[in-house]
């Protein structure tokens, strides 16, 4: 079982884990994910790979507490083992060399920019990360991202750090030529509403944009279709055909509705966990 080497809280609801997983670390690429299961009888949940260190054989993930299983994950500490970690899963992000790549991270989605920005910077692309959060306290990994990309732009809803406003406002300024300038490729990772807003921002100026979809998943290997998303009017399985898709082709309305299919059950699971006394750390 993969052992947790390092665990630290980034915000009251997000936690950073470095895991000993040399096989996965050796082949993981930006855009891929892992499926986790933390206990016998536990569910399988998809988590985006935030970073990897091939030499050290470690994998980095950032988990946000949103329900019962993520609460159980976030209760883990260094030295603990994770029952099942399967990956890397999904396809990786492929974009042509030599452009200006802008990664947009909303909330804990910023974590996935770590390997993305590092890989694209390393091959010579110009890289800009736009990080967004409601306030300064919820902003994550800005210091870790600075050394791996050309520019880091910060936006907070309340103006407590960086620009006051949404990531899409800063992105629009970039497209207009401001600051680090117009990006050739935008990759947005974060809450569905934020990714949809990014897609709308880049649609008219025709900037190629990818979004990392996070539908409900069961197996993550293409055998159930639970994660199907509509892309360009066609059904695609996010776990094998994605998880990254052309943002201008994705039907976000359907995707957002499908993600709410189990809200009642999710609430029940959280209430039950509270009764069991497995509480937030």
């Amino acid at each position: 079982m993969p052992r947790i080497l390092e665990a630290r809280s980034l915000t009251p609801v997000t936690k950073y884990f470095r895991i000993d997983a040399p096989l996965i670390a050796a082949v993981a690429k930006p855009g891929q994910f892992v499926m986790l299961r933390v206990r016998e009888g536990g569910e399988r949940i998809p988590i985006t790979i935030a970073d990897y260190d091939r030499a050290a054989g470690t994998l980095t993930i950032v988990v946000q507490e949103v329900g019962a299983t993520t609460q159980r994950v976030c209760a883990l500490e260094a030295g603990d083992e994770i029952l099942d970690v399967a990956g890397p899963l999904g396809g990786h992000i492929e974009i042509p060399l030599g452009g200006h790549v802008c990664g947009v991270g909303g909330g804990f989605g910023s974590a996935a920019l770590l390997c993305l920005m590092r890989e694209f910077s390393a091959r010579g692309d110009r890289t800009t990360a736009i990080l967004g959060a409601r306030s300064k306290d919820l902003l994550i990994l800005a210091d870790e991202l600075r050394p791996v990309c050309s520019d880091v732009e910060i936006c907070t809803d309340d103006g407590s750090a960086g620009m006051k406003g949404f990531v899409t406002q800063r992105l629009a300024q970039l497209i207009a030529g401001d600051g680090p300038g117009r990006p050739d490729y935008v990759i947005a990772i974060g809450p569905m509403a934020m990714m949809r807003a990014v897609a709308e921002t880049t649609r008219e100026p025709k900037v190629k944009t990818l979004v990392s979809m996070d539908p409900l998943m069961v197996d993550g290997t293409g055998m159930c279709g639970g994660c199907r998303v509509t892309v360009g009017g066609k059904a695609q399985f996010a776990c094998v055909d994605g998880p990254c898709f052309d943002a201008h082709q994705v039907d976000f309305e359907v995707a957002m509705r499908r993600n709410k299919a189990y809200v009642r059950e999710e609430k029940r699971a959280v209430e039950r966990l509270a009764c069991l006394g497995v509480c937030r750390t």
Binding site: G41, G42, E43, R44, T69, Y262, E266, A269, R272
Partner: peptide, 14 residues
């Protein structure tokens, strides 16, 4: 995933 035992098991079933 034994969703039929939800919520003892964590996977929900419609």
């Amino acid at each position: 995933m034994l969703a039929r035992e939800f919520p003892t098991y964590d996977t929900p079933v419609p």
